[in-house]
Amino acid sequence: MSAVEPGAARDSVDAVPGIPCDAEGPVFREPWEGQAFAMALTLHQRGLFTWGEWAELLGDEIRRAQAGGDPDTGETYYRHWFNTLERVVAERGVTSRETLTSYRDAWEHAAHRTPHGKPIELVAADFGDSRGTVE
């Protein structure tokens, strides 16, 4: 019985195109979906939650959205994902709903003063009279 060569699967994986991408399209339909996914992965690695806790909260979020009329066809999935993420960080004391809102508003302010096509950057002035700060 021959032992499995380490890396055999990997090598063949590298060699064969076709399977992964057929008809699949991009994994994330919009950049924010990828960012939301990566943030959850990172916070899990930092020990903020277990996947069991995550699955429960996400399931809860999806059920709530369905009850509210969301068709839950998968298109809105990352919205549920991100709602869950906001809830987790607020509940676990990483930040607060108020801070989230103040940063959201600041980003909107930043977008509205940035000409189309230029990178949008957040600066302290974008917070106006709210209390959030960035350096």
């Binding site: 960012q35 939301a36 990172t42 991100f82 801070t99 940063y103 000409p115 189309h116």
Partner: peptide
């Protein structure tokens, strides 16, 4: 013409800024 971000993009950027400032995430790693 000025930029416009979707509601979801705004919220995601907001959280990413906060987590970056608090050293929970590194934007490059994301």
């Amino acid at each position: 013409e000025m930029s416009e971000l979707s509601e979801m993009a705004l919220r995601v950027r907001a959280l990413e800024s906060i987590l970056t400032e608090k050293d929970y995430v590194d934007p490059l790693a994301l």
